[in-house]
């Protein structure tokens, strides 16, 4: 099946779950990544049971704070 992952068309085996997709896509710190399937939020608990279908659109939304370096990390701004 063809699905769209973060804007790119990808081929995956039918029946792939979101959990398996996260692994295959090597998503970093997945427990802190928000997933949407077809513009709907998917809870972390639903990832293992949710099978993807042809044409599904999956997005991974990442926390993004600031580019501080260790000695400055308690500062209040970027």
């Amino acid at each position: 099946m063809t699905i769209v992952v973060a804007g790119e068309r990808k081929e995956y085996a039918d029946g792939l779950t979101v959990e398996e997709l996260i692994e295959a896509e090597k998503v970093e710190t997945p427990q802190y990544v928000t997933v949407t399937v077809n513009d709907t939020f998917l809870s972390n608990a639903e990832r293992a049971s949710r099978s993807l279908q042809e044409g599904d659109i999956v997005e991974f939304l990442y926390f993004m704070g600031g580019g501080t370096i260790p000695s400055l990390c308690a500062s209040n701004d970027l």
Binding site: T29, Y62, G65, G66, G67, T68, I69, P70, C73
Partner: peptide, 10 residues
């Protein structure tokens, strides 16, 4: 848990 304070530049 996410790279904010550690090993991240910009």
């Amino acid at each position: 848990a996410v790279p904010t304070c550690r090993e991240a530049g910009v």
